[in-house]
């Protein structure tokens, strides 16, 4: 799931991005997942727009989420027209037509397909393979971003905490 932020960073000069926050997938008063408790992502399903906005703000600030952000209203209008719940990806071309229609999440939510679409249009962005860290002293290991978890928030995307 964290791939979306990476894709955004790779292609934000070429394409526009918009995150649409829809109704919660695993709130505490419905189908809560153990992973949500572990990650301290525990919210009841919002009953008011204010509650939905508060959760969205918490999300964007907690993870410093960089993508432009919009919130579906309490009539779930965006979710309805895009069949978006619980998570889904689309690409709209410059003429206002759907150029890519992702499958229903979580099983068919595939950011790699968005990357492939953008790569086909604008060229692939290569990332260096992670360098294997040789066993070293604990002080060295704890100083690396991955060991401290510093890289995790930047890779977080809506719905990513449970997937």
């Amino acid at each position: 799931m964290g791939d979306i932020v990476e894709i955004y960073n790779d292609y934000k000069e070429k394409a526009d991005f918009l995150t649409v926050y829809v109704r919660e997938a695993h709130p505490t008063d419905e189908w809560q997942m153990k992973s949500n408790v572990k990650d301290d992502v525990c919210y009841a399903q919002p009953k008011t727009l204010e509650q939905r906005v508060a959760i969205a703000k918490d999300f964007t600030s907690r993870y410093k989420f960089p993508l432009p952000f919009g919130i579906d209203d309490m009539s779930n209008a965006a979710d309805s027209v895009y069949s978006a719940w619980p998570e889904r990806l689309y690409i709209i071309d410059e003429t206002g037509h759907l150029a890519y229609r992702g499958g229903m999440g979580p099983f068919h939510y595939k950011p790699a397909e968005v990357r492939d679409w953008l790569a086909a249009k604008y060229g692939a962005v290569k990332h260096e393979a992670p360098v294997a860290v040789a066993p070293a002293s604990s002080a060295t290991a704890s100083a690396s971003p991955s060991a401290t978890g510093a890289s995790a928030p930047s890779g977080q995307a809506p719905g990513g905490s449970t997937k």
Partner: peptide, 28 residues
């Protein structure tokens, strides 16, 4: 859609323009 400030609104179509628009739907 409602903007993150909880006050302003905008339409998805306003974001369609000269470049492709990637829409990412999800929740926390």
């Amino acid at each position: 859609l409602v903007a993150l400030d909880g006050v302003n609104h905008f339409h998805i179509r306003e974001r369609i323009g000269a470049r492709p628009l990637v829409l990412v739907f999800g929740s926390f």
